[in-house]
Amino acid sequence: MDAEIYSPFSITTTPYKTVNSQPIPLYVLLPKNLPAGPAPILIHIHGGFLFAGNALYPDWSTSWSRRYNLEHNAIRISANYRLAPEATGLEILSDIRDLLTWVENDLSGYLKSIGSQVTPDVGKVLVYGESAGGYLAIQAGLMRPDLVKAVIASYPMTYIDSPWYAEPGDKHPFGIPTLDKKEILDKYLASMDRGKIVTESDPYARLPLAIAALQNGLFPDILGRGDEVYPARVLAKMSGTEKVPFLFAMHGTEDSAVPVEETRKFTQAWEEKFGKGSVVAEFKEGEHGFDGQVEYEAPWLQNGLNGVTKAWIR
């Protein structure tokens, strides 16, 4: 929370739910020049393959997203959630659902309790996430389209039942060599306290768990196989007449961690289901996390954000 990049914000924290007597926190970031009165809401969900990370990890906070946040005087909510393998996919999704409910019902009272004169406008909710957070942002939009007006999904995990996640293979995200499943994942699972939840970590401390699961095709085994866990299945079951948020997706074409082809496929399916104008998808040269160095004024970024702004605020 002391990272310099967050200096334009005043940050407080509170739990939004408790599981097994363990609180799950979120952070409320108020721009320091935010005027009294109603303000739109930007909910940020962090990445980490669903196995790692935390809400305010500074290296995963892009400058363009903070600038966009400040430009629109938005309340930023950055939340932790239960992590795999301690949590299943349905348990993680239940945290996202409860986070949205907290924002809808409890954020206003919380702001009053800390002496803020800012009031959240729950008619203007945007959800943004990268990688696993992009997956959860999409899921948030599909589960609560009545609340979520727009979604930004950066290099999102979408087809988590595809061979990339569900079959053993020669996969080397970021050039990481093949890891010893027995020494890393099996040993961890054998010693894991089933009654304990994990809601945050140093990203790199738990990343080997995710890579071992990926290389051995174990994501469906760990997350579960129910249709609700897989956004492409949720999308396929929809009629196309439902109200959905506007979707802005971006992906680096050299991504070694999350297949860019799957984002192309998912956004095409979204457009086919809900029509032109329901989604903007941008594919640019770069690795996973390519947008960390993107200039805010980049025309392709502004093209997507203009669609987000229209759906979110205007």
Rank of each mutant, 00 (worst) to 15 (best):
A3K: 09
A3G: 09
S7N: 15
S10Y: 12
T14R: 11
P15R: 12
V19T: 13
V19D: 12
N20K: 13
V28C: 08
K32S: 09
G37Y: 11
P40Q: 09
L42F: 01
G48L: 06
G53D: 06
N54T: 06
D59E: 13
D59L: 12
S63M: 06
W64K: 01
R66C: 02
R67Q: 15
L70C: 03
R76S: 05
N80G: 02
Y81T: 10
A84T: 08
E86Q: 11
T88F: 11
L93I: 14
L99K: 07
L100T: 05
T101D: 14
W102K: 11
V103H: 00
E104R: 15
L107S: 03
G115M: 15
V118G: 02
P120I: 08
V127I: 10
Y128T: 06
G134Y: 07
L142C: 05
R144A: 14
P145R: 07
P145S: 10
K149H: 07
I152R: 06
Y155D: 01
Y155E: 03
T158S: 05
T158I: 10
P163E: 09
W164K: 09
K181V: 12
E183R: 13
K187A: 15
Y188I: 13
R194C: 01
K196Q: 10
E200D: 09
S201V: 08
Y204L: 13
R206M: 08
R206F: 12
A210V: 07
N216R: 03
G224F: 09
E228A: 14
V229L: 07
M238Q: 08
F248S: 05
E262C: 05
T263L: 01
A269F: 09
A269V: 11
V280A: 03
V280M: 05
E282F: 00
V294Y: 00
E295N: 14
Y296F: 15
W300V: 03
N303G: 04
T309K: 14
W312S: 03
R314S: 11
R314D: 13
